[in-house]
Design a protein around this nucleic acid. Structure first.
Lengths: 211, 211
DNA sequence: GTCTATAAATAGATAGAC
DNA sequence: GTCTATCTATTTATAGAC
């Protein structure tokens, strides 16, 4: 056997394997960040906790991500990608209003599973980082355009209140991702997660007033 | 003149003056805390910032309050007292549904004025402090009972969705105090505060779906 | 790339003079 | 009661050996 043949055949495979390991590790990191962001928010989450949860040294974390802000931004990006992927499965299979309800249902499920990273509060250091983060903003725009199209379609069909500006509807839907009500309801122990989601969908789309 | 007479006459007045100064200072402290809690939340707010905003040394702050948690708890208590005082002005003057809407309107106004302290996120160190804080819990119960009575009355009148558990309605109303939508809408520059409040009242009570 | 060890900055809280 | 100065713990981030 020619060693150069071996090399040319094995080298790509080994690099691919390494890359997969690398990606798998980064995935574990981002998952831990996601969970901690959901549990306690950006300010209260510490890099030490992330490292401990992943099971690696803190210095190793900084080989993967340059800062705590970038760590959080990456978690946000992954969540937006998950969201877009889910929206794509809904697209064109249902009437627009039901697609919007499906989107809210998904957000509530992810939140109740403890995997929805908390939005940065008004003046967080994270907010500036995110606004300047190209990957984040691009994906946020993509999701917003998908939802925005559904909103206008649902309004055109007369099923969604057409007197509400679409931006108001969009923000109201987004806000379900960090709604404290699901957590409060769960802490009462009175309702299952499925019941909580159905209740929230009703208050969101039908409102509190009698119909 | 008998000095003991002078003393007995003057001493209470001087102590009252001192007490007023004391209360005025504590009020300034709590106001600063309130503003900072609204702006950046408990974790991101630092005691140094509070001291700087009040214009006193940090050590002086700790003569008034034993810890950062107590500082925040006192701000919460004051806000609950303001809320209860406002609710009392509404009581028995309007139908229950309009009283509930008035309560939400008040919360949104206070929030837009930057005076609504942010609720503690799920696992905040503040949460444990608050749950054990007698003054806070008492006032929270009082507000909840007032609102709870109105909710049941509005449901009995058939104006509020009677198929929703009252606790769900109560939590949904409370959540308006930390709703991120008003801030997002304001940042677009498209709407006045009054318009934002009316839009939020509509989405809250009428829902997003067409009627 | 991972680790241990440590820097550098900042947090909450306190000591002690006045 | 207020101040300056400081303590102690914790945080983000890095250096340098392997």
């Amino acid at each position: 056997m020619n060693s150069s043949v071996l090399k040319s055949a094995a080298a790509p495979a080994r690099r691919s394997f390494r890359e997969q390991m690398h990606l798998a590790r980064e995935d574990a990191i981002v998952q831990a960040v996601n969970r901690l962001l959901a549990e306690k928010g950006f300010e209260a989450m510490t890099v030490d906790e992330v490292a401990a949860e992943v099971g690696i040294a803190k210095a190793s974390l900084y080989r993967h991500f340059p800062s705590k802000e970038d760590l959080a931004a990456e978690a946000m990006v992954r969540t937006l990608e998950r969201a877009q992927a889910f929206l794509d499965t809904l697209d064109a299979t249902l009437p627009p209003l039901q697609r919007l309800q499906g989107a809210v249902r998904w957000m509530l499920q992810v939140q109740l599973q403890g995997e929805m990273p908390a939005l940065p509060s008004a003046n967080s250091s994270l907010r500036a980082t995110l606004m300047a983060h190209r990957g984040y903003m691009d994906r946020l725009m993509a999701v917003s355009e998908t939802l925005g199209g559904w909103i206008e379609a649902a309004q055109a069909e007369g099923l969604l209140d057409a007197t509400l500006p679409p931006i108001v509807v969009l923000y109201t839907l987004y806000a379900r991702a960090c709604d404290p009500v699901p957590g409060f309801l769960r802490s009462t122990g009175e309702y299952s997660d499925e019941q909580i989601i159905e209740l929230l969908l009703r208050t969101c789309f039908q409102g509190l007033a009698a119909r």
